[in-house]
Amino acid sequence: MLKKLDPLLHSELRLAIMSLLISVEKAGFTYLKEQTEATAGNLSVQVTKLEDAGYIFVKKGFKGKIPQTICNITKKGIEAFEKYVEELKDYLKL
């Protein structure tokens, strides 16, 4: 019997965020917004959900006088993403 996919990752925007973060070392909020083409509000909500789950680490600071949010994937996030991809392969019988 096929397992249920991780509901936290099985969402379009959250999966997109995780896919971007698994490929880079760190990424700013602006970069994530550009690449996912999401609205700032929606992106912010999904980033917080991933942060609360411990899948990503969010560091808030300042670049000069402008606030800057930098995100990077955590070890738990990498493991969850890898597990999600494995389960996806099972579904698709790859």
């Binding site: 969402s11 379009e12 996912t36 083409e37 929606n42």
Partner: peptide, 8 residues
């Protein structure tokens, strides 16, 4: 990616 919970 407008909606936050699109069915996948």
């Amino acid at each position: 990616m407008e909606t936050n919970e699109k069915v996948l």
